[in-house]
Design a protein around this nucleic acid. Structure first.
Lengths: 238, 238
DNA sequence: TAGATTGTTAATCGATTAACAATC
DNA sequence: TAGATTGTTAATCGATTAACAATC
C-alpha cells in the first residue's frame, strides 16, 4: 500500500473490548452501516475503488477477484472477504460488475457526493493537478486556485482564474471547501497551513516536503513518491 | 498501506514457533539481517524515514517516538517496537538522533545507495518532478527525461535535455536504470510501459490513471492522490 | 453440463497496545 | 535527583489464507 498517509484520523475509534458495553454484541462478519471501518478495510476498499475506476474508464464491464488481486496486490480471498462483509455484490462464475461495485464501495466509504477542493500554488505541479482529471474522476472538483505571486494572479489555469492567497478565507467559506491541496514550496507550507486550518479546512493534502503541524481536528496527508519508491525498491532488492 | 507488488514477498520469513526446527531458536525480537521484512514493517519504516528526512531538513537533531507518532499516525509503542527489533537506536529520556536514525533505517531497507531513474513525459507534471528535490533527497537521481513530442525534444528541463522516447532502450541500458517514472497521458501509458519493461526496468511509478499490465518481474506503483483523499475523507466524515 | 468464481469457514499468524521497569 | 523516554513484555485483537461448498 502506498504508505497512504492516513493511518491518520484514528482518533476516537477505540474498539469496544470489554463486555461491559451496553450495545448488543455485533454479528461478526456483517458490518453494521453505523460502524466505522477499520483502517485496513478502508484502505483496501479505497484501493479497489482506484482500480475499478480505471477499469471502468477502459470499458471493462466485469472483473474477478483474481484480476483485482493482480492489480492491487491484495490476496483475492481477502478481497472477496472484504466485499462480502457488506453484501453479495458478485456473481459466481462471472465476477463483479464494475459499475455497480464502484457505487457500492463509494456508498460504504460514504464518499458518493461531490467535494470541493482548493488548490494552492499555480506552478508546474499546481497546473498539472488543475488540468488533470485525477480528482474529478473521484468526485472532487477543484473550485479555486490560489497563488501568492502577483504575476500569476489573474491568469487562467484550466477554467479557473488564479486568486490571491489573501482571499482564501472568503473563498473557503463561500465554496464550502473541506480539502486543500498544497502545491507550494516547503518554505511557504507551514504558514499557509496555519491560515487554511484556521479558515476551517479539515484535510490538507501536502505535496511539499515540509513537516506541517496542524490542530488535532485537521488531518495532513503528505505525498512522498520517493518514499513509496524506496518501499518498492526494498522488495526488488531482496 | 502501500500495496506495492509484494504481498508475496513474505515467504521464508516464518517465525520459528516450534522447537522441532533444526536451526537454533531465533532470538525473538532481534531481526536477522538476512531476513526479509514483513510488508507492514517495511511500509512503516519507509514512513518513519519520510518524516525523519523532513525533520532533518528542518534542522531537528533528535526526535521522540511520540513526535514521530504525531507525524506518522503510527502508535508510539509500535514505533519503538519496530526500531528496537534492529538495535538500540534511542537514548532514554532523550529520544532518537535524527541523522543516525535516518542512516539506520536506510541500512535496514537496503536503500542507502544512489539509484538512477528515468522520467517519461516533459509536461507540467514531468517538469515539476524533474525540478523538485523530492527524489534527490532519498537517493534517487533523475538522469534522463524522455518525451515523444518532437517539439519538446532538445529543450532543457532542470539540467537535463529532453530525449526522444525512441532512445529509451539505449539510455536505460547505459545508465543502469531500474526505476521509470511515467508522467504521460493515460492513452500512452501501456505501450510505453511495455517498452520500458522490455528494456529491463523493474519498477514503474505510474502517474497516469491507466491500468497497466506488466510481466511478473516488474512492479507497478500507481499514484492516486484522489483515492488517498477519499480515504482521509472517510475518517473525517465518520 | 462443465468450468469458473463467489461466499464462507476455520485455523494460524502477525499487528497492536497498555503498562512498566530500565536508564539517560 | 527528577523527569522523560526508551526497550520490552504479555495479552488481545484483527488480518490473512487455504480450502471448499455453493452456484452462476
Amino acid at each position: 500500500m502506498a504508505a497512504v498517509g492516513a493511518q491518520s484520523a484514528d482518533r476516537g475509534r477505540q474498539r469496544v473490548t470489554t463486555v461491559s458495553d451496553d450495545r448488543p454484541i455485533a454479528d461478526p462478519g456483517a458490518e453494521k452501516p453505523g460502524e466505522k471501518l477499520s483502517l485496513g478495510v478502508a484502505a483496501r476498499l479505497s484501493r479497489y475503488l482506484q482500480v475499478l475506476t480505471q477499469a471502468r474508464k477502459m470499458g471493462k464491464a466485469t472483473i474477478s477477484s483474481q484480476e483485482l488481486a493482480d492489480y492491487t496486490h491484495v490476496n483475492s480471498t481477502q478481497i472477496r472477504r472484504d466485499l462480502s462483509g457488506f453484501g453479495k455484490f458478485g456473481k459466481r462464475g462471472v465476477g463483479y460488475n464494475v459499475d455497480s461495485l464502484v457505487s457500492q464501495i463509494r456508498k460504504i466509504l460514504r464518499t458518493s457526493g461531490q467535494h470541493n477542493i482548493a488548490l494552492f500554488g499555480a506552478g508546474h505541479l499546481g497546473t498539472a493537478i488543475a488540468t488533470s482529471d485525477i480528482f474529478a474522476d473521484h468526485g472532487f472538483r477543484v473550485v479555486a486556485v490560489f497563488d501568492s505571486d502577483q504575476h500569476k494572479v489573474g491568469t487562467e489555469i484550466g477554467q479557473l482564474e488564479v486568486q490571491p492567497t489573501s482571499d482564501l478565507r472568503h473563498v473557503i467559506d463561500e465554496e464550502d471547501i473541506v480539502v486543500a491541496v498544497l502545491a507550494v514550496p516547503a518554505s511557504a507550507a507551514q504558514e499557509l497551513a496555519d491560515e487554511i486550518a484556521d479558515a476551517g479546512v479539515k484535510i490538507i493534502f501536502n505535496y511539499s516536503d515540509a513537516l506541517i503541524r496542524v490542530p488535532p481536528e485537521v488531518t495532513v496527508h503528505t505525498s512522498s513518491p520517493a518514499v513509496d519508491l524506496l518501499y518498492a525498491l526494498y522488495f526488488y532488492l531482496t
